[in-house]
């Protein structure tokens, strides 16, 4: 197995590298609920045998924070979103709660997003902002801002534990292809594609970082690095800047297609929103 091979190859050198490699036995269970963190890859992820959650590759202490909602710092923001859910805003004098009685009605929604509608990729951020502008008469939230990531975490949480299951056929096919193209295109002065790190080298240390498959099932994700919830597009942007590439626009068409493609690579993994990463 890949994990074993990597472990053996580093074990022989003087022991300076930290052995943070994925443990076969690790299981993610929160409050009695089991999560699928490793499963057979869907046929359309043709270069992968298995798909794995980013949780597997995190250090023990980071993993532990996700095992208990009281320890998970992401829940501070979920609580803020509950307040926002009930807060009247905009010209129509409405809150989210005025139209949707309970946020629990959104169970399952996260697993199907992004989806393609009317010739466009629609993300959860788009759905939230459409409600704000069209139904509440309120200003749209910043695509990757604090209010938005809090709200997408609250809505995503309702699907926690359910398998990712985005549609990639029919109307979605062309956007999926576009996302795939972006995934394999080398960019930046370091001249790398997402695939170079997250497909060819996952479960490998890149200096202090243990590379995962770059899956999106945990988003928005709380990062210890910046102590807040991070959106999918913000993470894409960060990875592009690290390879010294000009990122695509957060909330723009390229990132939405990429988000659809990557979500489809994680088909079958449980939604972990809000996950904890470093």
């Amino acid at each position: 197995m890949k994990t074993l091979k990597v472990l053996v190859s580093t074990a022989c050198f003087v022991g300076m590298a930290v052995s943070t490699h994925a443990e076969e036995s690790a299981a993610l269970s929160i409050d009695g609920q089991e999560f699928t963190i490793q499963t057979a890859a869907p046929a359309h992820a043709e270069n992968l045998d298995e798909v794995t959650s980013g949780w597997i590759y995190r250090a023990k202490e980071t993993q532990a924070l996700q095992l208990d909602d009281f320890d998970n710092p992401g829940f501070v923001f979920v609580d803020q979103a509950i307040d926002l859910w009930n807060e009247v805003d905009g010209g129509e004098g409405k809150a989210c709660a005025s139209c949707h009685d309970d946020v629990e009605q959104f169970a399952g929604l996260r697993t199907t997003l992004p989806r393609v509608e009317g010739g466009k990729v629609v993300t959860m951020e788009d759905l939230v902002n459409t409600c704000r502008t069209d139904h509440m008469g309120a200003e749209p939230w910043k695509y990757s801002g604090g209010q938005m990531t809090a709200m997408t975490a609250l809505i995503g949480l309702q699907s926690r534990g359910m398998p990712m299951n985005v549609a990639i056929d029919g109307e979605a096919a062309e956007f999926w292809e576009e996302g795939k193209e972006l995934y394999y295109t080398r960019v930046g002065q370091l001249d790398m594609a997402c695939s170079n790190c997250h497909e060819d080298n996952y479960d490998t240390m890149i200096r202090a970082d243990h590379l995962s498959q770059g899956q999106t099932n945990g988003f928005p994700t709380y990062r210890l690095k910046n102590a807040k919830l991070n959106s999918t597009h913000a993470r894409f942007k960060g990875c592009m800047k690290n390879i010294r590439a000009e990122p695509y626009k957060v909330g723009g068409e390229e990132f939405k297609s990429l988000e659809l493609y990557i979500a489809s690579r994680g088909q079958g993994l449980s939604v972990e929103t809000p996950s904890v990463r470093n």
């Binding site: 295109t185 080398r186 960019v187 930046g188 002065q189 001249d191 800047k241 010294r244 590439a245 000009e246």
Partner: peptide, 13 residues
């Protein structure tokens, strides 16, 4: 290279 960040454009590492 494609889409190199402006501050690295035209430069070697």
């Amino acid at each position: 290279f494609e889409r190199t960040l402006e501050k690295f454009e035209g430069k070697t590492i």
